[in-house]
Structures are given as C-alpha cells and as structure tokens.
Design a protein around this nucleic acid. Sequence first.
DNA 1: CTGAAAGCGCTTACAG
DNA 2: CTGAAAGCGCTTACAG
Lengths: 350, 350
Amino acid sequence: MRSRSSAPTMKDIARRAHVSIGTVSRVLNGHADVDPLLRERVQSTARKMGYRLNERTRATVQAKSRMIGLILCNDFWLSAAQSLLLLGIEEHCSAEGYYVLFARHQFDSDERKLALPAVIRTPGLADCVILVGRLEEKVLKTFDRDGLSYVFLANHAEESGDASRHPVRYDDENGAYEATCYLAQLGHRDIWYLGDDSRFWQRTRYRGYLRAMGELKLEPRAHTIALSDDEFENGHSAVSYILEQQWPVTAIVAASDELAFGVREGLRQHRKEVPKDVSLIGFENQTGHSRGSNLTSVSVDMIEVGRQLAKEAIARSEAEEPFSRDVLVPASFIKRSTCRPLRKEEHMLL
Amino acid sequence: MRSRSSAPTMKDIARRAHVSIGTVSRVLNGHADVDPLLRERVQSTARKMGYRLNERTRATVQAKSRMIGLILCNDFWLSAAQSLLLLGIEEHCSAEGYYVLFARHQFDSDERKLALPAVIRTPGLADCVILVGRLEEKVLKTFDRDGLSYVFLANHAEESGDASRHPVRYDDENGAYEATCYLAQLGHRDIWYLGDDSRFWQRTRYRGYLRAMGELKLEPRAHTIALSDDEFENGHSAVSYILEQQWPVTAIVAASDELAFGVREGLRQHRKEVPKDVSLIGFENQTGHSRGSNLTSVSVDMIEVGRQLAKEAIARSEAEEPFSRDVLVPASFIKRSTCRPLRKEEHMLL
DNA sequence: CTGAAAGCGCTTACAG
DNA sequence: CTGAAAGCGCTTACAG
C-alpha cells in the first residue's frame, strides 16, 4: 500500500511550479486575483502530480470539518426507514461536498452523567449533528445547554419542546388523518388504530387518527401498547385479540406496513380476508417495495426527509446566527387495493 | 450555539496549570515520564475546563485520522443485510476509538475515467475504506493500482481475484450446501434453487447448491435470472412459472428470505402449502425477525461480518506491512418448520 | 497580483 | 523529567 504521506502537498506543487505556496492555495481554491499564466502553470502541475487538497488541514485552519454526524440515539437497530434517512443525508451531503459520520449513542438514563457522543463532543469532528432514533427531552436539553450544533427529527422526539429548536418533521399526522377520513367516506364506522406509542414517531399518527375520529364524531378504538419488538407479531396478536373479543371492526389503520402485514396474517388465520371482511391501511416507510401486498398506505418520502435534515445541518454549521426555520415534509396517501366501500346493511354484520 | 472555537485548547490548559504545552500533551496522552505533581495539576485543570483533545489536529500531526470509510459501491439502496454490516462496523470502530464515514459511490463504467470516492481519494479523510455493494473487478484493480488501503466483502465481489487481496467473506456457500443436503436427507429429489446471479453475493449460494447436488448425484434445477428488482416478486413469478410448466418440485432453496416469502405466496395462489406440498428454505440476512414465517433458513450473522470488516480495516490502517489474513465468517443452518420428510411413494405424486 | 510570515492545535525529537 | 522549537499541510491577512 502506498503510504498516505507520499501524496503530494502544496509545497511540492509550489516548488515544481516556481511559485509560492500561497499562490498555489489561491489558484486551487479558485480565487479570482491570480495571473492567468501562473494559474495555468499551477493547475497543470497540480494535475500532473495528481494533487488532492488535504481536507483535514484545511479543516484545521478554517475551523470547520465539512463533516455532518448522523447519530442514532438510544436505538440499536437501523430500521428500513432510518436506512432511507441515511441515504438521503448522504445524497445531499456529498452533493454539497460534505461527509457523513455515522454513530450510535446510548445516553445514560442518569441525567447527571449523561455523556454526549464523541462525534459532536470532540473538537475537530462533526460541525453539526443530526439526531434520530428515540430522542428523549433531557437529551435535547443537554445539547441545548452545551450549545452544541444539532438538528433533530421531530417525529423521533418524545416531545417537540422549545419552539426555538426548529426541527425537521414529516407530516404523518395529516397522513393518518386523511387515511381515517377516507375510510369513513367509504362508509366505515368501526375504524381501529393499531400502533405502538413507545415508538415516539408513531404518536403523531395516532394523533391524526384521533383528530379525524373526533371531527367525524366516531368513537376511537385503538391498541397502542406493543407486546413485543416485532411489529409483525404485534399486528398479528392485536388483531387476534380484537377478533376474539368480538369487538366490531371493519377497518384498521396500522401504524406501519410491518404491523399491517401481521394484521393481514392474523385476519387470515381467523378466516377473514382483506379487503372483503376488513379494510386495511398501513404506513409505508419501506423501500417502496410492495412485497406483493398492494397495501393502501400513507407514504412518507424518507429519502427526502434525509435530504432536508442534511440541508438544515449544513446550514446550521455554516451559519453564524442561531437558526430559525421549521421544515415540514408532507406525507402522501396512496390508494391501492386493501380498502373497499361498505354498504349500509353491513354495519350490523360484524 | 457556542462557537466551536471557544473550546479550550492545550495552550489554555498550559497557561492555567503553569506548564508547557508539551507537558500538557504528555500527560493527556498518558505518557509515563511525567512528575506526578504536574500530572495531577494538568489533569485537574483539564477536567475543570472541560478539555477535549482536538481529533483533527492530532490526526494532522500523526498523519492518520482514525476514520474508516464504508463505501456502498454501485448500489443505490442499503439493504437490510447492509444495514447490519453498518451496525457491526460502527460497533467495532467506536469500541476501538475509530469513527465511521459513510458514502455511496457510483463507479464510471468507462475504466479510464473511473473516479474513486472522495472519502479515500482525499488526503486527511479515511485511513482505510471498506468496500461493499456490487464490486466489479476493475474497481478493485484501480484500488490496487493506486495503492489505496481497503478491505472488501468477497461475497459482494464479481470475482475474488488476486489471492493477495485477503478479503473478508461469509460462508454461505457452505450454508447452501448444508441446506441442500438436509433436503436430500429428508428424501427430496426434486430440489430447486431460486436466486438472482446478477447479485454477486448470491452466486456462492448457487455454487453451494450445485456442489451438493453434484455429490448427491441429483439433477440440479435452478432459476437464477431475475425479472425485477423486487425479490418478493421474483420468487412469486419464478415459482408460478415452475408450477405452470408442471415441472417436478418438492423442495426449494431460495437465495433470500424475501424471495422465499414471494415463493410461499406464489405457492399459496396455486393452492399449494408449505411444507405440506413443498419444503422451503431461505437465506436470512434480516434482523432476525421471523415475520411470523418460521422459515427454515441459512443464517449469517451480518453484524459479526461488519465487526470483522472493521477489524481488518483498522489493522490495515495501522499496519506498515501489507496485510495477509483471510477472514471467514461461518453460516449456520437453522431448522424451523418449513421443511418436511418425503415418503418414498410421494416421489411420483407430482 | 504575489511572496513571506503567522497561525490553526496538536506531537515529538532535541536539549538541558 | 520538562521546556522551547520545529513541523504537520493548509489559509489568510499583510506588505510590497
């Protein structure tokens, strides 16, 4: 392996091009006030020698690293949706000449010894950090207190907190609202919501459902406590329980696709079909693969959310002033084939 | 936001502790030859001022960054398995005091202008890079030619190439072999393999299947060309085609779980059940969630593969010598409930 | 327009 | 054991 230190430096270029190192820096950084002849000479010798600017030393002198950290907080797994966030973040960062540093961090539950991630704590690493995962209020407070530069995904936060934080958010609250209204328009009355409120990011979905049911004057019926970490299992067991209790249900809004798949399987085992017996809507944060399901879903473009997070992070790391802009990425409701209209008589059937 | 530049430096510590900056550096780096009194004084003032060593400038003077790059090559999506790799890499790196830089890179198909990723090209960024995704031989050659420090996942490479490369590999070839033998032991003869050989990492699975069938003197029957990028769909259509052609089949080895789920759905639509009519084995690189499937699978601990990749990358970035060690992570075969023994008479039935 | 020089925050021989 | 100094590879006022 060629040792890294053998890479040519500006000094080498300067010597070969018979100019000062300051001049080399100026032409390589595209400054205007350089003699065209010198510019040409420097550029060609830099090209010949395969020169590449050393990002690290530039960062030292400019006191910024052009690195954005993505911190997965208090969460071991990287979900499919979070992978998409990462891809969106990487896309925007690399387009802007930034680099992305990935780290997980488990915050101590004892507030007094709550250590912050090295990626942002250590000078010389990330200029700004993007927080996703399970964001507890006390963690955000610590970032505020220490004056650290960060952006966070509000959907992943326990509470949105101080308005001056200006988070990025996706609007699945409204997506859940629309989905619920759609079911009501189809004639459904017994519309259930299934989710897991210990996953912070699902709470807004529940809120959207509740808002819709309130406006529609329908009685909300929800199951928001998860029995396990496996959403498929949770969907399966929740719907089984509902059916065994013989509670009325003609439609279900599931807080995730995985949950919806579990629901479908549970229904199947109780000899019920989608959408013949029960209409079903999920939340699709997956790769967009339908998995043969044709599930009607609320869809959020998580890659776009990632791009927006990166954009904010870069803006904050470049800005002198504190930042003051909220970002809202809309959700879209995609009708596929797992819902059907209910005729009047059917209300009694179940 | 507190400006990054307000963080205390060694100079600040030195002034406050009335010592030279060299001494500060020595105690903070744990060098032995320091007077205990001075050591104590420096440590306590560093603690009081909340000092943190600047990683960037240390990197400059030591000419290594303690950053490992993970490059997803020629692949837009981060699969579930690749997410696990990332988690394993992050785990090992952060335990060793390293940082992980994530980037995607699309290599130009024209070999002459094949640009390498900034993360490794640019001095001052990653010390070594981990290559995953779809690794074409010419890309690896370019890394070799330029003497760049890298590790790659052999399962993701078009060909393993030069033996001196010493890749990390997981042994799904053997996993596929075992799975196939297991089916044969159960009495199956008409064992199919379904996969997608354009995904480099599935080719070894096919090879394992072929080796087993050869040793067993059974006729291999495989479908290794994918019709789409959606593995569920591919599984679905492949099995439908086989059934429509009325080819004999009592068992299927599917190159991924996603594919296997598609197969199961396809069988279901043809009124066939697993394992009653067809035994089914998948490859599980997922989070370990069974998705209610109870699928018999070959399982690879992708987090462990990630750890090993990171370990090699760190070793290479610290070593002076070229490196000389292959790493093989074993696969394990997990029997669940989607296979059953075949009685003699049944061979004719299909 | 250009060069000489100071500086970014460290580490590390080199004297003492 | 400790300090003064050189150096890592850049950028950026400051003179000229």
